[in-house]
Design a protein around this nucleic acid. Structure first.
Lengths: 139, 139
DNA sequence: CTTAATGCAAAATCTTTGCATGAAC
DNA sequence: GTTCATGCAAAGATTTTGCATTAAG
């Protein structure tokens, strides 16, 4: 009784394990990191399966994807209430979903004003979080 | 008398050619496309040099970089008046710099509100331009 | 029984790098 | 004479794909 729920594809044990592992991570993780974590935890799963599963989850809108400065894809489970943007710490990878209403409105206005259709947007914020901040005075 | 102007590195003929070729392109182009264009135009330049030059230009702030959906880096000369964001047509590659004051302010507010420092932002808009719009009624 | 998932290895792609050569300062 | 730029080929890295095997519906 696997894949009746999510429409089309089967929810197999490996796929469930990938999603679980993703939820177990704090912030964004790469496919390879996730694969390593799974194998370390004794879940025998191939790298291809991790990649394929993440693609499925992405297509199904269950994960958000950003790219780090090297172009590597990083994944994170999407909050239940839809589309989000993130602020990610460059040092420790800690990530925070940020309120982005203004940006959404800005995108909507641009789309309206300029003769473009089906406008998609990518917004990625990266910085250094409080915990990783270089010491202000002494060190 | 090459590289006195730009601070540090020399402005050699090949590098000038790369920048010229970049200006000759309408929108964003990849390093490989640029290299092919140069070679086709009879400018003997190696792929490595194109990559290295683009990295220099990026570091110097003379070009803007976006990533297409495959993670490939696309370059475009930066307008003289600073930081820009772009709306790129997914079909033909036509790109437009868009007014982004609201987004800049939004980023500034997020930075202020949340305990993060040195916040960088990436904003990429992609859509389908008027010329590439699928015909509305007849075809 | 038919269809889909999986793992492994090979392939594909973009980008960087090591090293020898040549030009610039 | 040192330092930097260049080209070529090789290396690196991430992601995808082909194919045989196995499990699910």
């Amino acid at each position: 009784m696997y894949g009746t729920v999510h429409g089309g594809w089967r929810t197999t044990p490996r796929r469930a394990a990938v999603l679980d592992a993703l939820h177990a991570c704090d912030g964004f993780v790469s496919a390879q990191t996730l694969h390593t974590a799974l194998v370390t935890d004794g879940v025998g799963v191939g790298l291809s399966t991790v990649y394929r599963t993440l693609r499925l989850l992405e297509a199904a809108g269950h994960v958000d994807v950003v790219r780090d400065s090297d172009g590597e894809r990083l994944y994170r489970p999407r909050p239940d209430d839809g589309h989000r943007h993130y602020l990610v710490c460059r040092e420790c990878g800690f990530s925070l979903a940020v309120e982005s209403g203004e940006v959404e409105q800005w995108v909507a206005r641009i789309t309206r004003d300029i003769g473009f259709h089906s406008v998609d947007h990518t917004v990625e914020l990266s910085g250094v979080c409080d915990g990783c901040r270089p010491g202000p005075v002494d060190r």
